[in-house]
């Protein structure tokens, strides 16, 4: 299952995120999706690229600069926050902090693989009783 808690950014957070993605092999959440997405992550000097291809949920990740159905561009600082659950991808896209070109549906399904920020699990309280008052 997904990480449910934001973690601290480390120098290899982005690398680790894609490695973890590749290690999943098949992801049931994406089984309706087929297509390719490329992530261009720049720090002002150089751009690192990851290509993710999805074939009915089968995920492959490479470092090739391949053409893709959906290209996601972000600077490194933003993307690092996204991969640890500290930045919501959709809101970032809406404000132009992350730029998407091509098929937006792929971004919607891929954002499901990004961790969520805070994750307070709704606590089951057992103090109350659902019995009818007498």
């Amino acid at each position: 299952m997904l990480q449910e808690r934001a973690r601290a950014v480390t120098p290899d957070s982005v690398e680790a995120f894609f490695e973890e993605l590749a290690s999943r092999g098949h992801e049931p959440l994406l089984r309706k999706a087929t297509g390719s997405a490329r992530f261009d992550v720049g720090d002002g000097k150089r751009t690192e690229r990851w290509s993710v291809t999805i074939d009915k949920g089968d995920i492959r990740v490479s470092r090739k600069n391949a053409s893709a159905d959906c290209v996601v561009r972000a600077d490194k600082a933003s993307f690092e926050r996204a991969v640890v659950g500290d930045l919501n991808l959709m809101a970032a896209v809406l404000r132009g902090e992350v730029v998407v070109q091509g098929d937006p549906r792929l971004l919607v399904v891929i954002q499901r693989l990004f961790p969520r920020p805070s994750g307070r699990r709704p606590r089951r309280k057992s103090s109350g009783s659902a019995r009818k008052p007498k």
């Binding site: 990480q3 309706k32 919501n88 549906r105 919607v108 399904v109 969520r116 805070s118 994750g119 307070r120």
Partner: peptide, 20 residues
Amino acid sequence: LLALGDWQGVGLDDFRDEDP
């Protein structure tokens, strides 16, 4: 069904009241 399925919650996000 398809569009809401694509957006179905996957994690816990208090700001968005999202649950899996």
